[in-house]
Amino acid sequence: MTTIDAHHHPVPDQRPKKERLFWKNRGHAEHFRSHEEEFDACKFGMWLFLATEVLLFAGIFCAYAVFRTMYPDAWAAGSHYLNWKIGGLNTVVLLISSFTAAMAVRCAQLDQQRWLKINLVITLLCAAAFVFIKLNYEYIPKLLDGKAPGTFYSYPFAHDPHEPLWWGVYYIGTGIHALHVFIGAGLLAWVLYRATRYKAYGPTEYTMVENSALYWHLVDLVWIFLFPLLYLIH
């Protein structure tokens, strides 16, 4: 019995999951004419979703631009509190992870199972490093100093009365970005699990790898703009 035949005869596939999910045994959903069409539809759907994600961050960037125009002194003082070395290190970490995510897609396309897993592990380690750097060198020391948004603000030595607003934009911008890091890492961990357990991805079946990698690149893309806006522009 083949997978494609299984669509025509609705008999449940009795093989163990490990075999069913092996990439060579995967067909396409019956409302698509071919695997190719399914892949293209999935990827297009992913891009539509990414567009909404870009618009989500656009709101934050817009808030940044508006408040920067209104309170340039607070923004100048705010970026002085941030250390560009930490932000730069996180940029490098994310760029490397984006590269390994792209490599993971390539390895799936070429059926290099071992390198697929290695690349995914490196990407996940980079995600962990990013979160660790962010928490340990930025969020925790700053919150202990009282540099918190809005009425949570308790840092006594502000240079400008609008600094709590800067911290609001900073925490929302980097916080929603960090949330995306967690979601992206979760997706890639799921891919790693399936690749390890079922050898689920190969030349004919890598939609999940591709779309998870796309999501991860979006995380990178947002950081490419957050880094200069928050750390470098004075």
Partner: peptide, 26 residues
């Protein structure tokens, strides 16, 4: 990143169109 890592350069132009429209909104 978009062209090479996200492979828009090699993709169907429809995906790039989605991104461009989105950037226009931004």
């Amino acid at each position: 990143v978009c062209m090479f890592f996200m492979q828009l350069k090699y993709d169907k132009p429809l995906n790039a169109l989605v991104l461009f429209f989105c950037l226009f909104c931004v």
